[in-house]
Amino acid sequence: MHLLMILTAVTIACCLRYFANIPQGNWHLRWQKTLFLFLFPPLLIFMTATSVVCMGKQGTMGGMYTGSFSYLLALIFIGFFNILGLKLAFQGWKSVKSARECPQINLAGKQVRLLETGALFAGQMGFWQPELVVSQGLLETLSPVHLESVLAHEQGHYQYRDTFWFFWLGWVRSCTAWLPNTEALWQELLMLRELRADSYAASQVDPLVLAESLLLVVTNNPVGEEICCAALGAGDRLEQRIEALLTPPEPTSEAQLQSWHIFLFAFLPLLTVIFHT
């Protein structure tokens, strides 16, 4: 019976992902729909595995005997999930430690870390209370007004606690990379994260200035250097971000936004514990 539960959860998760389409519309709607498609299937599998482990390898459920194979399978999955989480946490800790070795400077009245490199970089480093890290190349390339737009964008990442939430989303991505469309949905979430921070920055500074900053990074970044500035970005995402900045945002009513209550369905497997004897 437990094995049937696991197979059912995996089948539902794969079907949801396989038939998933990248949503269209403004970033508010795209964010809600993409987050559901990305997070709900892994959450359903994880909750099913958790319920199987809680029920144990002995007893009956619905008149059917349970075996040790499904229990062991669920235990391996949860153990793998936790090991990957510890690995990502260790990598994040090393990144934060490396960032804290950079000297602190005062920039626009804020304490930031200075990365001594010619590449253009700006990003939040940390977990719940991240620190802003900017590169020497960025300070030398951008004018004060363009630099202000970059700082406003990074404040948007701080406001939405992107470093915290995307650590957990990255954990889910690593554990369920085998599910269909994981990478496509992950890239969409990364794009929407930047659009959300752009939208926040556009409420603080001139959107046109931020759009100009995007182009300045692309044209002034040293040849051969990866454009790793979290605030600016480049490549095939550049056009989409500039277009969003120059286009007036569409009003989105609360009724259009997806309710978080739908995620409660992923916890339904936990109810099966009461039927285990």
Rank of each mutant, 00 (worst) to 15 (best):
H2M: 05
H2A: 03
A9S: 12
C14L: 07
C14K: 10
F19E: 01
Q24Y: 10
G25R: 00
G25Y: 00
F38C: 00
P41R: 03
P42F: 00
L44N: 04
I45F: 01
M47L: 13
C54L: 14
Q58H: 13
M61S: 06
G62M: 13
T66S: 10
G67C: 08
L72F: 09
L73F: 01
A74I: 01
F80I: 11
I83Y: 14
G92V: 13
C102R: 10
Q104P: 03
R113D: 07
E116R: 12
A119C: 12
L120H: 08
L120C: 01
A122P: 10
Q124S: 15
S135V: 02
G137Y: 08
L138D: 02
T141D: 13
L142E: 12
P144R: 15
S149L: 03
L151K: 03
A152N: 10
E154W: 04
Q155L: 13
H157W: 08
Q159K: 11
Q159F: 04
W168C: 04
C175T: 11
T182Y: 00
T182C: 02
T182V: 07
L189A: 03
R193K: 12
E194S: 15
L195A: 04
L195D: 00
L195F: 09
R196T: 14
D206S: 13
L208P: 05
E212Q: 07
S213F: 00
L215M: 11
L216H: 02
N221R: 06
N221K: 08
G224T: 13
I227H: 05
C228Y: 10
C229A: 15
A230G: 06
L232R: 10
A234R: 07
G235V: 12
D236W: 05
D236R: 10
R241L: 04
E243R: 08
L245T: 03
L246Q: 07
T247K: 13
P251T: 14
P251W: 05
L257M: 11
L257V: 06
L268Q: 15
L270R: 12
